[in-house]
């Protein structure tokens, strides 16, 4: 065989070897996929049935999806979820990035600050913390007491339908610890020499942030964005615990996932809940796809 011919024959072989290595590394994941795919398809099937949990599902074709069109509560839950996502995701990511950058700049006692700022995320949706929120943001709670000092009459944060969702957004922003930790880990991977070099060139802090930090951190920003969007569309616990599962006051915190849960488990309509789940999957997939498509314009990988 001539040398070029050998190279030609070797290319597919190398590709096959690459394929094999890839699949080998993915082996556990393929196993896990089996675990996930069975319930996945089960729920897809249920989406086209009438299923009350207690008697066998009955095929219903597109009935569930047709019902969605006229379901006012479903539309309300979509509205709540979209507002929540569009406001709280950028807000909490900005706060997380800001604090991470401040903490990254050689702050003394970094470990302590990092732990303290992470605390709310640790406490998160625990029952105890929800009790605290109720009592902080109650009609005559501490927050309103503090506002009264400044002569401001605070609203009924958790019981007024005009304020409850904002209070939940505030609660969410307060737990910025998780994305903050990821940002910190990402910042740590940016080689210090880049900053040293640009400092020698006399670049300002802002300039460094724009031309070093942002591009080099962009894969991590991208991760946090995609991940927060997915998680935010699926928000459940926060809405559940604060409203005791009702989505109240007056459905103002009726998250999509909370309504889905009510349908499935409180109203014994798992068929409808399943079709809601697949609609949500498509919505999230759409947003994630947009993220990935726009990523090529602002996310920089080193390779």
């Amino acid at each position: 065989m001539t040398a070029p011919a050998r190279a030609l024959a070797a290319a597919p072989r190398r590709r096959r070897r690459q394929d094999r290595a890839g699949y080998l590394f993915l082996l556990p994941w393929f196993g896990g996929l089996l675990f996930m795919i069975v319930p996945f398809f089960a729920s897809l099937y249920l989406a086209f049935t009438e299923y009350d949990l207690l008697t066998p599902p009955r095929w219903a074709g597109l009935d569930n999806f047709r019902e969605m069109l006229g379901d006012a509560l479903l539309h309300q839950s979509l509205k709540v979820t979209f507002i929540y996502t569009l406001v709280s995701v950028p807000l909490s990511l900005a706060v997380a990035l800001g604090v991470a950058i401040v903490l990254d700049r050689g702050v003394r006692g970094l470990a302590v600050y990092r732990s303290v700022y992470y605390l709310p995320s640790l406490l998160g949706g625990s029952v105890a913390i929800v009790m605290l929120w109720r009592y902080l943001f109650g009609y005559d709670g501490i927050v309103n007491d503090a506002l009264a000092w400044f002569g401001i009459t605070g609203p009924a944060w958790t019981t007024d339908p005009d304020y409850a969702l904002s209070t939940l957004i505030l609660l969410h922003v307060w737990t910025f610890g998780a994305p903050m930790v990821i940002f910190l880990a990402g910042l740590r991977q940016i080689p210090a020499m880049y900053y040293e070099a640009s400092a020698m060139d006399g670049a300002s802090k802002w300039r460094q942030f724009r031309s070093i930090t942002l591009p080099l951190l962009s894969p991590i920003i991208f991760f946090n964005l995609v991940q927060s969007l997915i998680a935010s569309f699926q928000t459940f616990t926060q809405g559940y615990v604060l409203s005791n599962g009702s989505g109240g006051p007056a459905d103002s915190t009726l998250f999509y996932n909370l309504y889905l849960y009510q349908k499935g488990f409180a109203e014994f309509d798992m068929g409808y809940a399943s079709s809601m789940a697949w609609l949500l999957l498509m919505i999230i997939a759409g947003f994630t796809a947009i993220n990935f498509l726009t990523a090529r314009f602002w996310v920089f990988y080193d390779n």
Partner: peptide
């Protein structure tokens, strides 16, 4: 797999 609400699973 991250996008489907867990309740239906």
């Amino acid at each position: 797999t991250m996008m489907l609400p867990g309740h239906v699973l």
